[in-house]
Amino acid sequence: MEVEVMISGIGGQGIQLVAKTLSVAAISEAHHVQMSSEIGGEMRGGLSISSVVIGDHPIKALPILDKTSSALIFHHKFSEKVIGNLRPDAVVMLNDSVFEGEIQKEDLQIWRIAATTIAEDMGHPMTAGFVMLGAFNKITGLVSQNALSDAMEKVIPPYRKQHIEANLAALRAGEDSVSSDYASIWNHNSPLLKVIG
């Protein structure tokens, strides 16, 4: 089993941090992981896409994906590339507070999360990425919720440690924002299974 997660948005939204958190969480649970990134030249506002592949055997996926079984789309900018790669029945999570327009594609399992609004309501708009990740992981169950929290604390650089509490709250808020129960892909009850068979 090998699951692709593509995360796209604009620089500054925490795309790479979210991808790294998911990757580190997966490694901590003894899964195989590959994470590749495409980043525009700018620190803020430029293209930022990360592709995470999680598997139960050594990763076969190429470091540049042209198919993905799931996506977290943080912004409409630069989303075309990811949308074009979506497999039939792919799990897609949109940041509904920011994303403008519609995805012109059938056969998708789409979740819309008002991630930025939720984050703003908690007083930390920069944590929207973790709201998305918390929600996505609750739906798909790629890793345990504890592993995700622990991974976030690990990947936060030392000069950002003051944000850990807010990030934890964001992960929880993301989980609470989806009504379904936590589903684990490894227990074979995740909607991702519809994509990867």
Binding site: S23, H31, V33, Q34, M35, S36, I64
Partner: peptide
């Protein structure tokens, strides 16, 4: 460049 920056387990 890809080998340099791709992160893997």
């Amino acid at each position: 460049d890809l080998i340099a920056k791709t992160q893997v387990g």
